[in-house]
Design a protein around this nucleic acid. Structure first.
Lengths: 340, 340
DNA sequence: TTGTAAGCGTTATCAG
DNA sequence: CTGATAACGCTTACAA
């Protein structure tokens, strides 16, 4: 009997979990039969399969994902890369992706891409070799970096288009049309778009759509920014928004819109009396502000779900089904009103 | 030359990344030398090490985490299990854990434990064998289930104590003392605690602390609930809160407090005039409400960080350093005032 | 239907 | 300081 020496030197004395060898020995079968019985149901004598399954259950067999992934090259793990885990925009996205993964038998690994330089060493470097593919919701990565990632693993983008890479992009045109319509109907004739970071594809795209719809309506349009896509970005933009003389502003996202809202409050500017403010996304908290934020809702949860399903389909060698449109729509609350 | 057949049948024709064998061949060395050079720096001739590192860089060697984990039994992945990924309470927690993992060279896998039954098959079952340990912030799991998990992997709890398992629990006593003090100073003589789910250790703990401090102050105390720890839980509790006749209420968490706030607004109850409301945690959005929420801030980011560091220490066979106290404190905003 | 054996990329042990 | 060689747990031709 060889000494049972616990390798790894790590923690207490946990009994190593059962392997297919343990099952095989118990039943006097060969490991390969056990392996087959467990993951190719039906390709084996029904009775043998029963015995194997029973023994597996009895021994508490779990299966070692790492060992499995070595011969197959698949880990059944997917990465989700976001630029900032604390940004509420991503919550619904994460939820959608998580759920889809779970349903499809995959494990989701969440990573943050913060600064672009981090692509060299760090989280992403550790993540990439460990997953079968990644969903990228990282607005701050450069196109180059994305191509670089796509060179080593399968990729699905969210809220962004880069070359021919597959991407899930909600159809914002609808939502923007509704937004402009809403403002025009209220009587606004001028509008400002408060842009996010210059590198953000979605910020540019939203700006573009707003611009198109605004001029189609004969409205005055100006763009302000770029700014950081968060509360302080919105807050700091107030002076310029004010200086522009526009009666309504659409911010790149809700965080910025809320920041702007706060700044207005601090400065004694009445919203929506003096200024109508709208955001994008409808994040958690958008209905908690005073006034509650009117916004263009983005189906982030469905986007997360769709991205994962598309990725898994690709992994399985299936042409991903043409994604549904993922429409956006406005949610009218209290931060917009007729100008005076 | 054997046919280069792409295994896995998955995706396009990505070139398989370099292995230590490729490097060894290139340099006419043995794979073991390469392995040593790469992860035991110094234990090898400086010149050889140089050559190996250069070749590795040249070939774009990445290293295969799965292959590594097979002999070592360590995956350098940690799990973070939360009960609901969309609950804003967890954002700062996730951020703290993510950052610590990143710094320590680990990869964080996020999982949701939603219903307790899911422990049998599903996410957790897939997660556990793949990680070196887990951080559990899953208030809804039963003690039994946690013990079950702890039997197969290293565990650190957050905001909860179960047996002797290591746990990171902020010192709420301080925060609660401040909260009661604040209310007493304002002139409140009666207080309700709005409890979360009965299974939540933290909900009971907070209730207990509030109770103790309230009676110590000679205040009337009642407990209402249990309720679901979210907006609707708070909302639905209003009638009972109102019926209790208390002039102030402390909700188990901010989500519930905000729900209550909303319900008050809908019913025309003035906050803080008719009722003072406080929450716990200081989640994103707590300062966006009207009135802005007074709350007991919980250092969730530091808790996440501490949990990961403690876990990794245990994994490395080091006795985790006695954790700092992680004090809580109140953040006074607008939802509390003198009763009339 | 089942067994044999080779291999997946690393690390670790033991010689040289 | 470096090189064989044997694991690690599993999958998968190929044989029986």
């Amino acid at each position: 009997m060889s000494e049972q020496l616990s390798r790894g030197g790590a923690n207490g004395n946990r009994k190593p979990s059962a392997t297919i060898y343990d099952i095989a020995r118990e039943l006097e079968l060969s490991p390969s039969t056990v392996s087959r019985a467990l993951n190719k149901p039906g390709r084996i004598a029904a009775k043998t399969e029963r015995r194997i399954r029973d023994a597996a259950a009895k021994l508490g067999y779990r299966g070692n994902p790492m060992a499995r992934s070595l011969p197959t090259g698949r880990t059944r793990m997917l990465g989700l890369v976001v630029s900032d885990v604390t940004n509420p925009v991503f919550f619904r996205l994460v939820r959608g992706a998580e759920k889809a993964c779970s349903e499809l038998g995959y494990t989701l690994v969440l990573a943050e891409s913060q600064e672009s330089g981090e692509l060299e060493y760090g989280t992403l470097d550790r993540l990439l070799p460990a997953v079968d593919g990644v969903v990228l919701a990282a607005a701050r990565l450069e196109d180059d970096q994305i191509h670089q990632i796509a060179a080593s693993t399968d990729v699905v983008l969210i809220n962004r288009r880069v070359g021919e890479l597959s991407a899930i992009v909600p159809d914002i045109d609808d939502g923007v049309a509704q937004a402009i319509d809403h403002l025009a109907t209220l009587g606004h004739t001028s509008i400002a778009y408060l842009a996010g970071p210059a590198i953000s594809w979605m910020s540019r795209e939203r700006g573009e759509r707003v611009f198109e719809h605004a001029v189609a309506r004969g409205m005055i349009f100006v763009e302000i920014g770029p700014t950081s896509p968060d509360l302080v970005g919105g807050q700091s933009a107030l002076r310029r928004v004010h200086a522009s003389g526009m009666s309504a502003v659409l911010a790149y996202n809700d965080l910025m819109a809320i920041g702007l809202l706060r700044a207005c409050r601090a400065e004694g500017i009445d919203v929506p009396g003096d200024l109508s403010i709208m955001g994008f996304d409808d994040i958690f908290g958008a209905d908690l502000t005073t006034p509650a934020l009117t916004t263009v809702r983005s189906p982030l949860d469905r986007a997360g779900d769709a991205a994962v399903r598309s990725l898994v389909a690709t992994l399985d060698g299936i042409e991903p089904a043409a994604a549904d449109p993922l429409p956006t729509e406005i949610v009218v609350r209290e931060s917009t009103a007729a100008p005076h």
